[in-house]
Simulated scan of single mutants.
Amino acid sequence: MRAAYKYAAQDSSKIETLYNDLEGVTKADSVELVAYKGAIVALMARSAKSIKGKKEGFLDGVGLVEYAVDKDSSNIEVRFVRLSIQQNVPKFLRYNDAIENDKAFILENFNGITSRSLKSHIADYVSHSKHFTDEEKARMIGL
């Protein structure tokens, strides 16, 4: 899922495939899957034909991400998914109020991640992000 999300975020042709893969995910599933589904729903909204469709799709996706965060706010992967969305959506969408909080949470908890895959996934994002300072990158991943 992590790799698929990364590639979908970078290549719009992969968004629909991942959207279809996550179609059956509900709020009863793991918060990580709900967060990724929300992120993909929000990304799919970009291709909606109308402004109303774009807005509704984005809000539906964000609603799923926020549900996942509310359900488990100490889950670093869920917080990372929200951060990756908030740092990359246009400011006029006004979905950026948790950036500093999520970023601080990730910086504080990064070294405690036990999953090598998750740690690598977040480190790769951070290393390419213009939203993390060189000092923060160095502190997290030794760049």
Rank of each mutant, 00 (worst) to 15 (best):
M44L: 10
V89K: 04
I113L: 04
Y95C: 11
V78L: 04
L22E: 04
M44T: 12
K52H: 08
I40W: 09
S129M: 02
K14L: 11
K54L: 14
H128I: 08
A3P: 03
D134K: 15
V41Y: 06
I51L: 11
M44H: 13
A3K: 09
I141D: 01
N96Y: 01
K49A: 15
S73R: 01
V41P: 01
M140Q: 04
N111P: 05
E32W: 08
Y95R: 06
L33V: 09
A28D: 14
I51R: 06
A9G: 07
A8V: 08
K130G: 09
H128E: 11
I122D: 08
A98D: 05
S74N: 09
G61F: 06
S47C: 11
N88F: 07
E23W: 15
E136K: 00
G38R: 06
L18S: 10
A28T: 11
D11C: 06
K49Q: 15
V78I: 06
I51K: 08
Q10N: 06
Y5K: 02
D21I: 11
Y5H: 02
R2A: 03
Y5Q: 10
D124Y: 10
S129Q: 13
K14V: 04
N88H: 11
L83W: 00
A4I: 10
S12V: 14
S30I: 11
L83Q: 00
M1H: 05
H121S: 11
M44C: 12
T133H: 04
K71S: 12
A48P: 03
S115H: 06
Y67R: 15
K103Y: 05
R139E: 07
T26M: 09
I40V: 15
I141N: 02
N96H: 08
S30G: 07
D29C: 13
S84N: 10
S73T: 11
A39D: 12
V25D: 08
A8H: 04
K6R: 14
Y95K: 02
E16N: 14
I141M: 02
I122A: 08
S50E: 13
